[in-house]
C-alpha cells in the first residue's frame, strides 16, 4: 500500500487542472476545418488605364450589375450605380475628351466611415470599405461625405429574379449600398467582376491586385508608370489609381 504526501496530492491536483485548461486548445488543433479570413497583410488596389478605356464600352458596368444584383429603377435621380462612366471634357478643347469608370475608391481614410452613426460602414482588415447593411439605418450621411458619389440609397423594394446571382444578396429598401470590390469573389480567389469583364470583353484597361505583394502585376505597374488618384488633394489615399489621366 502506498501513500501520498501532501506535496504529491497537490501536485497531482495541479496537473489535473492543467489538463482541463489545455483541453480546448487540443480540440482546436485536432479539428481545423476549412476557414479563410481577411488578411491585414493585403492591400487591394485597382489601376485603370484611361487610354485603353473607350467611351462606348460599358462591359464593366454590365458585369457589375449582373454580378451584384444592382437594380435599375429607371429614375435618373434614384438609380443605383456601383460603377459609372464619367466623361472629362476640357473647356478649351485643347485636350481630347476622356471617359473613365468611377467606382468606390476604397480610401485609406474614408470619410463615409467617419460619419457613419451606427458603425455600418467600416474598413475591413484588407482595406476594403464595406457597408454592413444589417446595421445601416439609411441616414445617408455617408452619401454626403463621399467625394466620389460612389454610394446610393435603395429607394425601392427590389425582388429576386431567376437571373439574380444567388451568391450575392439583394438589398432591402432604405439601406445604402456601394461597390464592394466584389468581396465575395476576392474571398474565393477570384477577381472583381468588372475587372474580369474589362479584360475579356472590354479593352483590358483594369488591373486589380495586392499592392503589398511586390511581385504582383499591379505593384510593378504602379511603381513604373505615372498614375494618379482622383481628388488626391483631399488626402484620403484612394486605392483606385488612374493611368493617363
Amino acid at each position: 500500500m502506498t501513500t501520498l504526501d501532501r506535496r504529491a496530492v497537490l501536485g497531482l491536483g495541479g496537473t489535473l487542472a492543467a489538463g482541463v485548461l489545455l483541453a480546448p486548445g487540443v480540440s482546436l488543433l485536432a479539428a481545423p476545418g476549412e476557414r479563410t479570413e481577411a488578411s491585414a497583410s493585403r492591400r487591394w488596389a485597382m489601376l485603370i488605364d484611361i487610354n485603353r478605356c473607350t467611351p462606348d464600352c460599358s462591359a464593366c458596368l454590365t458585369a457589375c450589375r449582373k454580378e451584384n444584383n444592382v437594380p435599375l429603377f429607371g429614375e435618373p435621380d434614384r438609380d443605383i450605380h456601383w460603377i459609372r462612366k464619367v466623361e472629362l471634357r476640357d473647356k478649351d478643347q485643347r485636350r481630347p475628351t476622356v471617359s473613365l469608370p468611377v467606382l468606390c475608391n476604397h480610401c485609406e481614410h474614408p470619410p463615409c466611415v467617419h460619419v457613419c452613426p451606427t458603425g455600418a460602414s467600416f474598413v475591413r482588415k484588407d482595406g476594403i470599405v464595406l457597408v454592413d447593411e444589417h446595421r445601416c439605418i439609411g441616414c445617408r450621411y455617408c452619401m454626403i461625405a463621399c467625394p466620389y458619389k460612389a454610394r446610393s440609397l435603395v429607394y425601392h423594394e427590389t425582388r429576386r429574379s431567376p437571373e439574380s446571382n444567388p451568391n450575392v444578396p439583394i438589398r432591402s429598401k432604405g439601406v445604402v449600398e456601394k461597390c464592394t470590390f466584389c468581396v465575395h469573389r476576392l474571398d474565393n480567389g477570384l477577381q472583381p467582376a468588372c475587372v474580369e469583364a474589362c479584360n475579356s470583353v472590354g479593352g483590358g484597361a483594369m488591373l486589380f491586385g495586392d499592392l503589398n505583394d511586390p511581385h504582383s502585376e499591379i505593384a510593378k505597374r504602379v511603381r513604373t508608370v505615372t498614375s494618379q488618384t482622383i481628388r488626391a488633394d483631399l488626402g484620403l489615399k484612394p486605392r483606385v489609381h488612374y493611368q493617363g489621366l
Binding site: 504529491a8 501536485g11 497531482l12 496537473t15 489535473l16 492543467a18 485548461l21 489545455l22 480546448p24
Partner: peptide, 24 residues
C-alpha cells in the same frame, strides 16, 4: 513507492484524465 509510478505515470495520468474529461 516504485520510482516509475512516482516520476512519470502519476504525473501524466491526471493530465490525460483532465484532457479526456474536458475535450468536448
Amino acid at each position: 513507492y516504485p520510482s516509475l509510478f512516482h516520476r512519470s505515470f502519476f504525473r501524466v495520468l491526471p493530465l490525460l484524465m483532465g484532457l479526456v474529461l474536458a475535450i468536448p
